[in-house]
Amino acid sequence: MRALHFRSTEEVAPDQRARYWRDSVHQSVVEMDLVPTEPHEFFGRIELCPLARIVPFQVQGSPQRVSRDPVEIARGDKNAYYLISQPLGAWRIRHAGHDHLVQPGESVLVDSRIPYEFVFGAGLDDLSVEMPIGWLERWIPDPARLIGRPLQATGGWGLALRGAKEALVPRALARLPLPDELVEDQLGALLALASGCERLDARVPRGPFERGVEAIRARLSEPGLVASDIARDSGVSLRSLHRAFAAHQHTFAGTLMQVRIDEAARLMVERRFRHLTIAEIGRRCGFLDGSHFARQFRRLRHVGPRDFRASAGL
Rank of each mutant, 00 (worst) to 15 (best):
A265M: 06
P50G: 13
F308M: 03
R272L: 04
D180G: 03
L178Q: 05
V12M: 06
G286C: 09
P14Q: 02
G188Y: 08
H95K: 15
L136N: 00
R199D: 08
V236Y: 12
G304I: 02
R2S: 11
A279H: 02
G163D: 10
C197Y: 10
R145Y: 08
P56F: 03
L127K: 06
G304Q: 03
Y81Q: 00
D126P: 00
L256C: 03
A96D: 07
D307H: 15
E41Y: 02
Q27T: 11
H100A: 09
G155Y: 13
A265F: 07
L288C: 03
A153N: 07
P141E: 14
L314Y: 10
Q249T: 11
L168Q: 04
N79Q: 13
D111R: 09
F209H: 12
P179V: 11
E47F: 12
P70T: 13
A174T: 09
D307P: 04
V269E: 12
H40Q: 09
H248P: 05
L136H: 12
G76I: 00
I261N: 01
Q64V: 06
R243D: 08
I54A: 11
H100N: 03
M1W: 07
E181K: 12
V29F: 08
T251P: 14
R45M: 11
V108D: 00
I216P: 04
Y20Q: 08
T251R: 04
D142C: 09
S85Q: 10
S240M: 07
I133K: 06
L267D: 01
E72K: 12
R94N: 10
F6C: 07
P150A: 02
G123I: 02
A253G: 11
S195H: 08
I93W: 10
G158P: 11
T9K: 01
E270G: 00
T154S: 05
V183I: 15
K78D: 13
A218W: 04
N79H: 15
F118V: 02
Q16G: 10
V213M: 01
P63H: 08
F308W: 03
F120M: 09
R199K: 05
Q258R: 15
S228Y: 10
Y116I: 03
R217N: 12
H95Q: 11
R301M: 04
G212Q: 03
M131W: 02
P179E: 07
A294V: 08
V183P: 09
T251C: 13
P305S: 06
R149T: 15
G188E: 10
R306F: 01
S237D: 13
P63A: 05
L83A: 00
S85G: 09
L109H: 07
V55T: 15
R175N: 10
G105C: 03
G196A: 11
S240K: 11
L241T: 09
A231K: 07
Y20H: 14
H100V: 05
L276F: 04
D142F: 08
